[in-house]
Amino acid sequence: MTQARGRTVRPYLRRIGARALAGVGVLFGAATLGFLALYVLPGDPVYAIAGNPDQVSLSAEQVAAIRETYGFDQPLYQQYLEYLGQLVRGDLGTSYQRQQPVTTLIADQLGPTVQLAAAAFATTLVLAFAVSLLTAKRRFGRGVSSVVELFFISAPGFWVGIVLLTVFSFRLGWLPAIGSGGWQTLVLPALTIAVGAAPPLIQVLRNGLEDTLDEPFVLTARTRGLSEAAVRLRHALRHALIPLTTLTGFLVGGLLGGAVIAETLFSRQGVGRVLVTAVTANDVPLVLGLVLLAALAYVVVNFLVDVVYPLIDPRLRSEVTA
C-alpha cells in the first residue's frame, strides 16, 4: 500500500509544482501586458494625470515635473524593471486621479466585494448542484429548466437585478434596495450574480451527469441494487465535476464582472464601484491594479482547482495510465 502511495504522490507533487510555476508565468505576463497598457499604448500619460489637454494647459516645466515624479523620463526598460520591482513588493503604483497608492484604495474597498463574491459563489454552486442533480435525465424537469436557463443566460444581469429590485424591494418590500450593511443587503445582489452565473454551470454539470449515467459502470452500480439517489451522488456526481474545470475562468470572470454590475446597481460599496469610477476618469493605474488583482484571483482559483482535481480523479495522479 505504501508502495502504491509512493508511486502516486510524487507525480502529483510534480504536477502541482509545474502548475504553480505556470501560474507565476501567467501573472508575469499579465503584469507585462499591464505595463504596456500603462506606458506604451496611451498618448501622453501626463494629461491623464493632470486632466484633459483641451481644458488644462500645462507649462513645459509642469509637464517635466510630472514626468519626473512618475518616472516617465527614464528609459522604457528601466521603467519596466522599476514597475516589476514595485509589483513584487506589492506596490501597484499611484492613482492618477486620487493621488493615493492604488493598494490603499483597493484595500479599503475590498471587504464588501469579497463578501458579495463569496455569497454569490455559494448561491451559484447550490443552484448548480441542486438543479442539475434534480433535472438530469428527467424529461419534464430538464425541459422546464432548460427554458429558464436559456432565459437567464440571455437576459442582461443588471436587468434581472432591476426586475428583482422592482419585485422584492418596491412591490413586496421584503428586502432593502440599496446599501451594504447587514446580510439583507447581500441577498438581491448575490442572487442577481448567481442567476447569471449558474445556468452554464448547470448545463455542463447536467451534461456531465447524463453522460456518466449512460456509462457501463453506472449500469454495474444499478445491478448491485443501488437506489437512484445513491447512483447519482456516489457515482455520477464525481464524474460530472471533471468537465467543470473548463468553467473556472468563466466562473471567476462571471463573479467579478457580476460584482461590478451589482455594486453599481445596488449602490453598494466595493472595488467594483471604484473600478467604474476609475474607468470613467481614465485612471489607468487604478484600473490596472484592479485588473491585475482579478488576474491574481483567476490564477489562484485555477491553481486550487489543479490541486483539488487529482483528489477527485485518481487517474490524474498516476504516472502511466494502462
Binding site: 505556470a22 508565468g25 501567467v26 501573472l27 505576463g29 499579465a30 507585462t32 501586458l33 497598457a37 499604448l41 496611451p42 475562468g249 471567476v252 470572470g253 462571471g254 467579478l256 464582472g257 461590478v260 473600478l275 467604474v276 476609475a278 474607468v279 481614465n282 485612471d283 489607468v284 484600473v287 490596472l288 484592479l290 485588473v291 482579478a294 488576474a295 483567476y298 490564477v299
Partner: peptide, 20 residues
C-alpha cells in the same frame, strides 16, 4: 493564457480606460 487570466468584462474596461 495570459489574456485569459483577465475576466472579459474587466479586460474590456481596461481597454476603455486606456482608449476612452
Amino acid at each position: 493564457d495570459v489574456s485569459l487570466a483577465f475576466p472579459e468584462l474587466l479586460l474590456a474596461l481596461l481597454i476603455i480606460a486606456v482608449f476612452g
